[in-house]
């Protein structure tokens, strides 16, 4: 007791206490800076968007310039279709390549996949749009939901691959061994034990990828192209919320600006709701 008392140097202790307080204050500040933009976006889009929001917005087609009212029903449905196509491409490819990298990481191919995924995640989304234009739009000779969905799918792949790999690597080796020791084959162990244990993290990653794709405008500009009419055929040009917002926001008309705000609000709200819903559905009944 006496020795430990002597070890404490009062002036040093004072200094350490001050440094501690300062560092904690900096951390809190950084936390606030992280939350503020989101709160601001939420607040501002709600304030500007909710006033133009009515039932028509969800049920009506866009009206020509000069006519009041109208809505973005086609863009909402279009966005859902585009995200659906994107998810159909991005989720299986992303998860399977993630599994491959995580479980077979010693192989040369896995190293290459890992490397290319990292690069792909840094490719600007507009470039991915150009790529989709080259491989889907030009051969089909028209803009289409298919091309837009393809671009969004490519965009989702690196995020999903990365998170699948990381989440599966977090699953302790002892669980794989436990399963294998029961005479379970390796692929079943991967699928039923490792993937299941990692599932909540992977689902979070998929959500992030979908949320990001939902808001993408650039890759849709010359793939989905946009459409002011009702269109649900996937081989035709299709409207999308972010595209519609973009077109309306750069227009000179006040009524269109209001609609753009409403669109932004709906977009954010949709992403938010999807997030909450999937979190609720996949909440871990055991570890929470």
């Amino acid at each position: 007791m006496r020795e430990s008392y002597i070890l404490i140097n009062p002036s040093n202790l004072m200094r350490r206490k001050i440094v501690n307080k300062v560092m904690i204050a900096l951390c809190v500040l950084a936390g606030v800076i992280t939350i503020l933009p989101l709160l601001y976006i939420f607040f501002y889009t709600t304030q500007s968007g909710i006033s133009s929001l009515n039932l028509d917005f969800f049920t009506q087609l866009p009206k020509p310039v000069g006519e009041e009212g109208g809505g973005m029903a086609n863009a909402i449905v279009g966005s859902l279709i585009l995200i659906g196509i994107g998810a159909l491409i991005g989720i299986p490819v992303g998860i399977l390549s993630g599994i491959y990298i995580s479980e077979y990481s010693k192989s040369f191919i896995a190293t290459i996949i890992k490397f290319t995924t990292d690069i792909l995640s840094g490719v600007p989304s507009i470039v991915i749009g150009i790529f989709a234009y080259g491989v889907v739009v030009i051969p089909m000779q028209r803009f289409s939901a298919l091309a837009g969905g393809f671009a969004l799918g490519i965009l989702m792949i690196p995020t999903i691959t990365k998170i699948t790999e990381e989440m599966m690597k977090l699953v302790p080796q002892s669980l794989r061994e436990a399963s294998l020791a029961l005479g379970v084959s390796r692929w079943k162990t991967t699928l039923r034990i490792v993937l299941t244990t990692a599932s909540s993290g992977i689902i979070t990653g998929i959500l992030l990828a979908i949320a990001r794709a939902a808001g993408e405008t650039a890759p849709l500009l010359f793939t989905a192209f946009g459409n002011t009419f009702w269109q649900t055929n996937i081989d035709e040009p299709i409207a999308a919320l972010p595209l519609q917002i973009f077109i309306y926001a750069i227009s000179p008309y006040d009524s269109w600006h209001r609609q753009a705000w409403a669109g932004a609000f709906v977009l954010i709200f949709l992403v938010f709701i999807v997030n909450l819903m999937v979190r609720y559905v996949t909440r871990n009944k055991f570890t929470s």
Binding site: P172, S174, L175, E177, A178, S179, L180, A181, L182, G183, V184, S185, I193, T196, T197, S199, N284, F286, T287
Partner: peptide, 23 residues
């Protein structure tokens, strides 16, 4: 095959490792 052998030869590990997602 290793799968057949492991059905015959079970193993208990150092650290208890029940499957966390299961009851």
């Amino acid at each position: 095959s290793s799968v057949d052998i492991r059905k015959k030869v079970g193993m208990v590990f150092q650290k208890p490792n029940p499957f966390p997602m299961m009851s």
